[in-house]
Design a protein around this nucleic acid. Sequence first.
DNA 1: TACAAAAGTTAGCTTTGGCTAAATTTTGTA
DNA 2: TACAAAATTTAGCCAAAGCTAACTTTTGTA
Lengths: 149, 149
Amino acid sequence: MTDTNENALSRSPDEQASGFEAVRTAHQSEMVEDYVELIAELIQLNGAARPVEIAERLGVTQPTVSKNLNRLKREGLILQEPYRSIRLTEEGRELAEACRQRHRIVVDFLVALGVSQEVAEYDAEGIEHHVSEETLAVFHAFTKERAKG
Amino acid sequence: MTDTNENALSRSPDEQASGFEAVRTAHQSEMVEDYVELIAELIQLNGAARPVEIAERLGVTQPTVSKNLNRLKREGLILQEPYRSIRLTEEGRELAEACRQRHRIVVDFLVALGVSQEVAEYDAEGIEHHVSEETLAVFHAFTKERAKG
DNA sequence: TACAAAAGTTAGCTTTGGCTAAATTTTGTA
DNA sequence: TACAAAATTTAGCCAAAGCTAACTTTTGTA
Ligand SMILES: [Mn+2]
Ligand SMILES: [Mn+2]
Ligand SMILES: [Mn+2]
Ligand SMILES: [Mn+2]
C-alpha cells in the first residue's frame, strides 16, 4: 500500500487546470443537451414536446423553459411558432440522438456494475456531461462484456 | 436485444425531475468543494496555499479566486488575514479530506476499469460531483476487487 | 359559442461565477 | 533601504439560469 505518488499532487498546474476548464466547458453545453434530449423523449412518448411538460420533467418553472428554448432556437436546434409545440431541426435531432445514446451507455454501465436502476438514472444525469470519448468507450465495452458472461 | 422499456421514457415526471434537481444542487457545492480540495493539496505540497497558485491550477484569474475565497470564509471553511496565505478551519479540513477521498476513489476506479491515468484525472474532476454514496461504494468495491485479482 | 382554465410569453429581479482595470500591499533585490 | 515586481484586493462589468408577477393566447367545456 505504498503511495505511488500517482496522485493529484504530482500533476503540473497546466494539466490540473485543463481538467477544471473542461468541467466549465461541459457545464456550458449541459442545459442545451438536456433540453434536446428531453424534447426527443417527449416527442417519442407523446408525439409532441410542450413547454409545460418540459418544465415539469426538469423541475423548473415555465418561464425558465421559455427563456431557454429561445437559446435553442438561436442555436438552430429547435423550431417553434409562438404558442405552439416544439419540433427538432435536423441538427437538433442529431444532437438529441447522441445525447440519448450517451445517457443510455452511462445508465447501462452503472447498472451492469451493480448500481440500482433508480440511482443509475439519477447519477447518470450529471455524470453523462463529464465523460470523455475514451471513458465512454470503456463503459460501453464493460457493459457488453458483462452482457455476454 | 428486445427493448425492456427500462429507459428514461418509463420514468415518472417527478422521478425525472429529481435527477435534474440533484444535478443543479451538486453544481452549487462544486466550487467550494474544488477550492478546499485544492487548498489542502497545496498546503501538503508547498506548506501553504496562495491565491496566485489556486488561480493557476484552476485556470481562472486572481480576482475570481479572491471573490470565491470570500464565500469560503463566510461559510467558515478557511481563514485568511488580508494579503496572507490561506489556512483551512477544522470544518474545511474535514470537507477537503472527504473531497480528496471521493476524488481518489473516482480516479482509481476509472483507472482500474481501463481508462488512462490522464483521462481518468480529467474526467474525475467533473464526475466526482455527481456520484451518489451508493455509486461511490460500488466504484470502491470494484477497485478493491480488481486489486486482488 | 362564450368564457374560464391552462399554457405560453414577457418583463424584470436575483445569484453565481467568470472577466478587466486599477488600487493596495507585500516581497525580493539592486 | 529604496523601489520594482509580484501578489492581493476592490470595483464594476457581463452572461447564464433560476425565479415571480403579469400579460397574452389557446384550449376545453358548459
Ligand atoms: Mn444531463
Ligand atoms: Mn440525460
Ligand atoms: Mn456537472
Ligand atoms: Mn471537481
